[in-house]
Design a protein around this nucleic acid. Structure first.
Lengths: 129, 129
DNA sequence: TATAGTGTAATAGATAAATAGAACACTAGG
DNA sequence: CCTAGTGTTCTATTTATCTATTACACTATA
């Protein structure tokens, strides 16, 4: 896994697991890979994994069962709330940053549309190769 | 100045100065505040300021004149390119993150529109108080 | 030519993050 | 009961960042 060296790895691991849950790769009640296995998969130390999981357990999004494993909470509402929170965080940061770069609301929306449109073209090109 | 403790301060200072240039608060040829003054303003150490400025000088966006001060480059093209690069970085990260959260292109655009619309309402409320 | 204002550099210490390694606690299954 | 697989905890070490402090180099100007 590729990490951005500007933000703590344990923090990026949290976001990685969040995303796995949001996309359904990890469903409510699912068992996570063993911490030692995760450490190998992410080419990272066990303690770093543990730190990420520890925080998520505190948040109530994961549940730990000693000797068995770590599991995604069965509380689906909690996951829904989390997704909403993560989306909102992205929106806030994105808007704030582009606004700080002196773009108007309209320019922000337009630039996103244009970016997505161009991206679509690139995808088409890749598919046709 | 408030810093996000998840990313290096020198890095956040760079972004702060970038934004000052994008908004026109710092124009081509302008002299920056003295490094010691910046350190006071940002409640940060001189070395930390120097590290941020040093990188921007390497990038060619700032020019240093020993004994005189640090100046924004006169090369306006360079600033325009920088703005484009910064906007593109935000777009890429935003899209990637929301896509990873399993939102479709349409949902991404809609959520942004909705966010901006709601934001406008909040602004209106503040203005009427 | 002093002096104040500027950038630059170097050292040493503090803290947070990440690593390596070991040990401990619990569970399941033969 | 033993063992393999799991989570948990601890210590020690390294690295990056930030700070504090001092010193040096250059410029403008009184």
């Amino acid at each position: 896994m590729k990490f951005d060296d500007k933000v703590p790895i344990y923090y990026q691991i949290k976001n990685y697991l969040y995303h796995e849950m949001m996309t359904g790769a990890l469903k409510p009640g699912d068992k996570l890979p063993a911490v030692r296995q995760l450490a190998v998969d992410l080419t990272v130390n066990v303690n770093t994994v543990q730190r990420a999981l520890g925080e998520m357990i505190t948040e109530g999004i994961l549940e730990s069962q000693r000797g068995k494993g770590n599991f995604v909470t069965m509380d689906e509402e909690r996951i829904t709330q989390l997704k909403g929170k993560l989306v909102m965080e992205q929106l806030e940061r994105f808007y704030e940053q582009l606004h700080a770069l002196n773009l108007t609301d309209e320019q922000i929306i337009d630039s996103l549309k244009q970016y997505i449109a161009q991206r679509g073209q690139q995808d088409d090109q890749r598919l046709s190769n």
